[in-house]
Design a protein around this nucleic acid. Structure first.
Lengths: 148, 148
DNA sequence: TTGTTTGTTCGGAACTTCCCGAACAAAGGA
DNA sequence: TCCTTTGTTCGGGAAGTTCCGAACAAACAA
């Protein structure tokens, strides 16, 4: 029997492999399995057995990465946190920024190697491939969003 | 003035952010800026100022990840290493495996949350989006390869 | 003002990763 | 066989990361 707690831990491991901290990944897992009202910090601390200082850091990371947003219900004194509506679309756009970084790295390599065609060939291929992907990706995302 | 050495260090930092070790990233950078004959281990150790034990580990990692291949010139006694011809295509295919893993994670989440539509909505969106991308990506790669 | 709630920052402990040198293993020539 | 070359594995130390509890700051209520 698979539980929400199990899923939360799996998500923690999954996102840890992708570069988030374990705690941040577990938060994402918990918020994925909760509804759009999200959760507040004390609840997350208690459910995930994490100190509030660690939770503060993890939530700030996720906020700055654009993965969660803070909000506050009218009249309440504490923040709540939920995944951004478009969190996975944002993840894809972040991948596109990575494509741009690859292109830039290839360009730096080309500036460094000079004129030798044997040494330019692979870097040019790298640059062109990532340029191609960066060019095509937005249309793919648009197509997905249109299909919703 | 940008040099090949600078580029090698930049590549090391770049690939370290992506999850490789610094040494492995520097090797990739060096091989990117060299020609198709690649380099041998003593040369890499000397140029990158790295112990041969560390180089052995880094090269094995890159080999197992399919990023470099070993080869030996006829009659020589030491291996040489070069980037696989299709190293960046392989990187994209690895991203597709990541898409599959996201789908799988979403499926586990759905199994855990039960019937509540409010809690299923986001996980279903996650699953469907990554399924869409996994479906479309091969055609994108084919298109790139055809355009060569 | 004083006390309470909420959230952040700081210092240190625990853990993990990375890299080195040394020891070891394997293969080829003398 | 014995020695050299090539490459791997092992143990330890250095560096970086993560998390905790405690101290701190800010906002609000009484």
């Amino acid at each position: 029997m698979s539980t929400v707690e199990d899923f939360t831990e799996e998500a923690g491991l999954f996102y840890e492999r992708l570069g988030l901290s374990r705690t941040a990944g577990r938060v994402v897992g918990h918020l994925l399995a909760s509804d759009d009202d999200g959760a507040d910090a004390p609840e997350l601390c208690e459910r995930l057995a994490v100190a509030k200082s660690s939770m503060s850091v993890a939530l700030r990371q996720l906020d700055q990465a654009g993965m969660v947003e803070r909000f506050r219900r009218r009249g309440e004194r504490r923040d709540r946190y939920r995944l951004t509506e478009d969190v996975f679309g944002r993840a894809f756009r972040a991948k596109m920024a990575e494509f741009d970084a690859f292109q830039e790295l290839a360009a730096r390599g080309l500036a460094a190697v000079g004129d030798d065609p044997r040494r330019r060939r692979r870097l040019e291929n790298m640059r062109d491939m990532y340029a191609f992907m960066a060019d095509r990706f937005p249309a793919l995302l648009d197509e997905w969003e249109a299909s919703r």
